[in-house]
Each structure stands twice: as structure tokens, then as C-alpha cells.
Simulated assay, not measured.
Amino acid sequence: MKITIRKLTSIEDMHLVLQLENIVWMESTPIHQTFTAAKNGGILVGAFTTNEDESEGKLVGFCYGFAGFKEGQAYLCSHMMGIHPDYRSSGIGRRLKEEQRQIAKDIGYDLIIWTFDPLESRNSYLNTSKLFGISDTYIVNCYGEMNDGLNNGLPTDRLQIEWWIRSERVEEQWRPSLSFENPFSVSLSSKGNPMLMGSKDELPFGNSGIEVPIPTDFQNIKKSEPELAYEWRMKIREIYQAIFTEGYTLTGVRKADGPVQFAQFIPRKLIPLKRIERGANQ
């Protein structure tokens, strides 16, 4: 399967985004909004299949961001990414983000931000271990009550990712060399879902990093045991907030076979976020 990634700029492109949004989210952003953003510092990129004659096929993924500004810092707010259900788990999300990053650098951005659910381990892994973003901002019930298939029934807690696209962390794909301590254990419910054992009081702040288990498949927990999903939400909220208060930052996810993955945190002061200046030909 050949996928082509390109910038989306035309009204026709915006119509394609709207159609895909309705498939992925069952709702859509008005075309006048996406089109205006694209003309004023925003960035939309799309993933297209390729026909047998090498012509562009259908839109199967998109990433939409608009210009933001806060406390003297201009940035790109990457508001939404959607992949057609038939094309997920094929690396399209990472390719969209990398294209977004390159266009953002060309425009002059240093920073891209977006939010994601801290209990979605696949997103955590992509955003930190693959794209080298970081997060130390926990937003409680960010979007209020949402009735779509992914968020129904739970507070919409989110982490805010900072993607410093010109930093050593991103440009050189810097990873911490610390050892990590995990003070938590995991047991299984009667339905085979993971249950987190322990509390924030057991967090080992010191010279090492910290690992926290998060579900491998949070969506399955939401469907099969809603009460357990809510318990995960409340426990992770409390633990992450305590970690961030101590100056630690999420920098990666250690993948593992089994019902949980492991979110990894280190002190923010150790992360190289200074802008790397490149020559004109680099």
C-alpha cells in the first residue's frame, strides 16, 4: 500500500477533511474554519492512497493545526489528527506528524503543542518515544463531557505535549540514560483487565527516573469494565499530578508484552530543549 503525504490548502482539500472527520469522529470542523486557518499560519496535512496509475486516491488521514500565541511564545496548536479505521496501525500518524513538523520549521515555528489521553498507551508511545515530545501538563476534564465513541462516560483528562521541533531532544532524538524505578504493581480483574495497585505516596523521587504502568488497551477496559476504567482515570490523575508537581516530565513509554505499558518520567531540567541553530543548507 503506497501512501502519499502532502500539505492541504484548497477548498476541495477541506471538503475531503470534513468527510473523513465525519467517519472518524462523527462530527466535523466547519470548512470556513479550516480554510481560514490554512491561510493564516495554520497547517493541514493529509495522507492519500495511490491509484494504480500513480494518481492521488482517497484521503485516509489528516492532521490539522492552527496558530497559537501565549506568554510571548508563538506556536502551532495541533488540534486534531484522524486516521480512517481501515488504515490505522500502519504508521500514517507518525508520517503526518513528521510532515507537519517540517512545514512548521519552514514557516518559522519552534514549538508544536497538542493534547492526548494519558491512558492511551499507543498515543503516549508515539508522542514521546517516536516523536520525542514531552509533557508535564495535566489538564483535568479538558473538553468536558463528550459523547463520541472514544470518550463517552469518562472525564476527558488530557496531557499537553510540547514538541520542541528544533531542540536537541527532537533533532538528535535524545533519550535519557537514567535507570527507572517502578513502585507500582498490577493485578488482573475477574475479566482479565489490569488493575493498578499503589498510590502517589509511594512515588520514589530522587536520582532515578520513575515508571508508571498504563493500560495496553484502555478502550477494551472502557467497554468491558467501565467502573475499572474510571478507577484508572482517577488514579493516574493523582499520580501524574504528583509527579509533575515535583518537576518531572513524561519523556517516553517502555513497551512490554502484557496488559500494561510503562510511562517514563525524568526531571525536566535534564532534558536538552535549547534550540539547535542549523546552517542554511542543513
Rank of each mutant, 00 (worst) to 15 (best):
L273S: 09
D53F: 04
E225F: 10
E238N: 03
Y230Q: 13
I92W: 11
G258K: 08
V60C: 03
T34V: 07
P194A: 08
F180I: 07
P272T: 01
G93T: 02
E98D: 06
I236P: 04
D117V: 02
G91C: 09
R95T: 12
N152L: 12
V170T: 05
I276A: 02
K235F: 15
A256W: 13
F184D: 12
L188Q: 11
S189F: 05
K39S: 12
V60Y: 00
P272D: 02
T36E: 15
E211W: 01
T34P: 00
G108K: 07
E120N: 07
Q19L: 15
T216N: 08
I31P: 13
R278W: 13
F184Y: 04
G57R: 12
W25P: 14
Y64D: 07
G108C: 01
E27H: 14
G91M: 04
A263N: 04
L196Y: 04
M234N: 14
N151Y: 00
N127R: 08
L131M: 05
E227D: 14
I31H: 07
S190N: 14
T4C: 14
T249V: 11
Y64N: 05
Q219R: 10
Y248S: 07
D157T: 08
L20Q: 01
M26Y: 12
N141K: 11
N141V: 07
G82E: 03
I161T: 09
P267F: 00
T115D: 15
T34H: 01
L250W: 02
F262Q: 15
N127C: 05
T128Q: 08
C142A: 10
G61E: 05
E211Q: 15
I236Q: 03
E120S: 05
A67C: 11
G41L: 05
D13R: 03
A37P: 14
T128M: 06
F69K: 06
S121G: 03
T50A: 08
F132C: 06
T36P: 01
